[in-house]
Design a protein around this nucleic acid. Structure first.
Length: 559
RNA sequence: UGACUCAUGGUGUAAUCGGCAACACAGCAGAUUUUGGUUCUGUUAUUCUAGGUUCGAGUCCUAGUGAGUCAACCA
């Protein structure tokens, strides 16, 4: 038994447990989530958020939210607010107030001066082209800039004057003095400060020089006492740089650990490409329910708990991976099956008149709100002579495996009676206009003594008592699992034009007239849906979250 | 033509550090069902290649192959 309880650890947890065992940092664990405030958070960020917050929590530690705001050109407060909202919605809380790399600008400046004093940094006047030229290539070593031999005093003076705003943008940079021949391109005297006379969203016009990522991220980790700095694999080449600065600056030794970022079928996470989708109106915005953004998934109706479960089940390792979209959907269904209230909505209504049900009569039937949760209680459903059923739930002549309504056959109405279809009216095109059926008065749901056992059960709504609704059906944004996988094909070629279908004439059970925006439902036999944030009592707007598992369509394919 | 990282069913992740390759999702078959949902049962399918060490290798060693990453005054 005790052996079964031994949960397997991912490689990050193994590292942390070793650290704990050796007494490193006195058993303290502090992680961080470091978004740059220049875009919206997406599924890949959700993964990083889960790893950072949940790993720390598991070992009694906490997590800092730190905005990596060292590039005033692209960053904005708007993103700062949205990012915080998304993280909170996902269910995580960071330590106290959010932190900002920009809060450390003065300290970072001091670090740079310290480096210069040690002869480990120099001011370079080379143009960007010259710097690139001298950098070499992965297989050809770089060569030193002529400015590398400047004296410490001269460097100190020049750097101070850079800060003072004496030089125009781009005219000078501060570089670390490491090794132009290193096989690691990032170690070839990386630029650590550049001149940008731009307004910063927090520090305003206080600075005209800004540190580069490599001179801000690791140092910020160190300043905050981050013990385990978890990032994605593409930063692996930065680790020697990260460690070099910590060593030379003699500051707190945070440790960077890289994991493979998560890719998901049919989703893209490139900021540039997502922006293109928004700007060119392929989607309605960053929170379009088809977007892989956290705000998009929220609007779609994916519960935060489902996203967390998904990230957990996807696991953590160091190899390239692409998670099947059906795992995400399985997590969403698993969560919603437990929590979503059941209700009946007809997407494509066709009228059924019950011949032997008295005109003008109605009755109230009871429907359970959630068979998975008895505590969810019952609701009232109005039954009447005229009802709507789904157009696709009727066929005059049906194949053997069709368990729905056909001529001269019985079918159950969920929570109501068994119907026997008698005939149907058609228009001049042969389209069914109205279906007629008899009902068995002794087959009422819960008190059925008819002895009839129909194969199928249909959802339905009362014609008079139902309300109109607009339902937005979403499908995958792209027609292939990996729309960015082929360098020769633009990802927009794979845009799925049918990714959004708007159903304008759906009829919903009247219960939904008081539904609150954001509430999630299961529409019986159809899937999970949620009330859109902009939905009103006058105009009900509903988003499809995900369909139910469908084995009938497979039967059809087989046939 | 350099460096770094990785390689386990269809997908993803494990295998307590050398001891019967497992879990989840997907698939397939069946049972239950007033949702063709849920639930339950069963089942298909896995260690990149070649050597080596060893009583024993997914795990260690060597070589190869394949995939990914790195040359922004972005993060």
């Amino acid at each position: 038994m005790s052996e079964e309880n031994r949960a397997s650890l991912n490689f990050i947890e193994q590292i942390i447990e070793e650290d704990l065992k050796s007494g490193k940092h006195n058993g303290r664990v502090l992680t961080r989530f470091p978004p740059e405030p220049n875009g919206y958070l997406h599924i890949g960020h959700a993964k990083a958020i889960c790893i950072n917050f949940e790993t720390a929590k598991k070992y009694g530690g906490t997590t800092n939210l730190r905005f990596d705001d060292t590039n005033p050109t692209t960053e904005d407060t708007e993103y700062v607010d949205n990012i915080q909202q998304d993280i909170k919605w996902l269910g995580f809380n960071w330590n106290e107030e959010p932190l900002y790399a920009s809060d450390y600008f003065e300290q970072l400046y001091g670090y740079a001066v310290k480096l210069i004093r040690k002869g480990l940094a120099y001011v370079d006047d080379s143009t960007p082209e010259q710097i690139a030229e001298l950098k070499g290539t992965p297989s050809v070593p770089g060569t030193d800039s002529a400015n590398k031999s400047r004296s410490i005093d001269e460097n100190l003076d020049l750097f101070a004057r850079m800060r003072a705003g004496e030089f125009p943008d781009g005219s000078k940079v501060l570089r670390a003095n490491i090794d132009m021949t290193s096989p690691n391109m990032l170690m070839r005297d990386p630029i650590i400060y550049r001149i940008k006379k731009e307004h910063h969203h927090r520090t305003g016009n206080q600075w005209c020089i800004y540190p580069m990522y490599d001179f801000a991220h690791g140092q910020s980790d160190s300043i905050e006492g981050i013990t385990h700095s978890l990032c994605s694999l593409e930063f692996i080449h930065h680790r020697p740089v990260y460690d070099w600065f910590i060593e030379k600056l003699e500051i707190f030794p945070s440790r960077q650990i890289e994991f493979a970022r998560m890719n998901v079928e049919y989703m893209i996470t490139s900021k540039r490409k997502l922006l293109k989708l928004v700007n060119d109106n392929y989607v309605s915005g960053w929170n379009d329910p088809r977007m892989p953004t956290i705000s998009g998934m929220r609007k779609r109706g994916y519960p935060a708990a489902a996203i967390r479960t998904f990230c957990d089940k996807a696991g953590v390792a160091k190899r390239e991976n692409t998670i099947e979209i059906n795992l995400l959907e399985a997590c969403v269904r698993e969560e919603l099956n437990k929590t979503a209230l059941r209700v009946m909505v007809v997407m494509d209504p066709i009228k059924v008149v019950i011949n032997n049900y008295p005109e003008g009569q109605t009755e109230i039937l009871k429907g359970e709100n959630n068979p998975e949760d008895p505590a969810a209680g019952d609701r009232d459903i109005t039954f009447s002579r005229e009802i709507y059923i789904e157009r696709e739930d009727f066929m005059e002549v049906a194949p053997t495996k069709y368990y729905r309504m056909t001529l001269n056959a019985d079918v159950r109405l969920k929570h109501a009676y068994i119907l026997h279809c008698t005939h149907a009216d058609k228009d001049e095109h042969g389209e069914i206009t109205t279906i007629y059926a008899d009902y068995y008065p002794n087959s009422k749901s819960g008190e059925d003594v008819s002895g009839i056992k129909p194969k199928g059960t249909l959802h339905w709504v009362s014609a008079a008592d139902s309300i109109p609704a607009e339902v937005r059906l979403y499908d995958r944004l792209f027609s292939v699992p990996d729309p960015t996988g082929d360098d020769n094909v633009d990802f927009l070629e794979y845009y799925n034009k049918e990714s959004l279908t708007i159903v304008n004439n759906a009829r919903a059970e009247s219960t939904l007239s008081v539904a609150l925006p954001g509430t999630q439902y299961q529409f019986l036999r159809q899937g999970y849906f949620c009330i859109d944030e902009e939905s009103t009592q006058e105009h009900l707007v509903i988003n499809k979250t995900v369909g139910l598992k469908e084995s009938f369509s497979k039967e059809v394919k087989k046939a």
